[in-house]
């Protein structure tokens, strides 16, 4: 497959796009799991009220704020204790859990494919 991707830029582009779409969907799935518990008290309704909707939106915004804030706090800390190898390990966990590292890449692609569909 790797060799195929090298010789086939069209396919390589497609695979990169699919990877990015998957990453975004995974993050959305994770955010939905978290925010559902925080915002939904009664799912037995024919539609959400505006309070529930804004709770979901705020939940996403604050989750991203929180992880951005923690990454900043963390890098401040790890600068003062940069010799500790524990921090290097924890940094990997943040990458996996909060998917912050792929986001810059995501942004670039997001420009190109404006017609992104979540569902």
């Amino acid at each position: 497959m790797d060799k195929l991707l090298e010789t086939d830029p069209e396919l390589a582009r497609f695979v990169a796009e699919m990877e990015q779409t998957s990453r975004m969907k995974k993050t959305t799935e994770k955010l939905t799991l978290e925010c559902w518990d925080l915002c939904i008290t009664n799912p037995n309704v024919s539609r959400f009220d505006s309070k529930t909707e804004s709770c979901l939106v705020n939940c996403v915004e604050r989750f991203i704020d929180s992880s951005t804030y923690l990454v900043k706090e963390f890098s401040n800390k790890s600068q003062s204790v940069s010799s500790s190898s524990d921090f290097a390990d924890s940094e990997m966990i943040i990458d996996d859990k909060f998917t912050l590292s792929p986001e810059p890449k995501l942004n670039e692609q997001e420009k190109k494919s404006s017609g992104f569909k979540f569902w």
Partner: peptide
């Protein structure tokens, strides 16, 4: 909820 979260 998934769609609202995705949009946000």
């Amino acid at each position: 909820a998934f769609n609202i979260v995705g949009r946000a």
